[in-house]
């Protein structure tokens, strides 16, 4: 009787543990971001590049823009570093492919956000929202999330519009 009871508890525990691990692996797999190239923001910033040097539409369009392979090639045509990752750029260029950069900032579909509005007209610094990305030497492995609270806090402080439809599309 007693032994059976333990056996059942043991089974339940093992099953639970298995399920938990499986779920963990599954979940982390679905949210983990692997960039095609281990891009080092810090190096580029230290090298004197402006954010808008690569994110070229940041000042005049809603989205900041992803650098096209050709843009990377303007500097990386020939070897600049000894990092083997750098070769990958030239491999993409040779295949005439765009580098499939993964998005790390996740805004819900019902939110409208314009970089132009914040960067060009309101002169906000990129770090106001993107904090330390410029200082990171590894690409983030998980999506960066924004909460409505952080938007609102700033909007209230700056006396910007807090009208719902100003941001919700």
């Amino acid at each position: 009787m007693q032994a059976n009871k333990f056996r059942i508890i043991g089974l339940v525990l093992v099953a639970g543990l298995l399920a938990f691990t499986w779920l963990r692996i599954g979940l982390s797999k679905s949210t983990e971001i692997r960039q095609p190239i281990r891009f080092n923001h810090k190096k580029h910033v230290q090298g004197g590049l402006e954010c808008s040097g690569c994110h070229q539409t940041v000042k005049d369009q809603a989205t900041a823009g992803r650098p096209e392979t050709s843009l990377c090639m303007t500097c990386h045509e020939a070897s600049v570093t000894k990092n083997p990752e750098e070769n990958l750029i030239r491999e993409y260029a040779q295949r005439h492919e765009e580098i499939p950069w993964q998005r790390v900032i996740k805004l819900p579909d019902h939110v409208f956000f314009s970089h132009r509005r914040h960067v060009s007209t309101e002169k906000l610094d990129c770090t106001s929202c993107h904090e330390a990305i410029g200082q990171s030497s590894e690409p983030p492995s998980r999506p960066i999330k924004f909460s409505m609270d952080s938007c609102l806090a700033c909007h209230q402080k700056m006396k910007a519009s807090v009208d719902c439809v100003a941001c919700h599309k």
Partner: peptide, 15 residues
């Protein structure tokens, strides 16, 4: 759904 300061009747789907 609410009336915004510019007189537009807004509809916020997430609410």
């Amino acid at each position: 759904t609410y009336r915004n300061p510019e007189g537009l009747v807004g509809q916020v789907y997430s609410r």
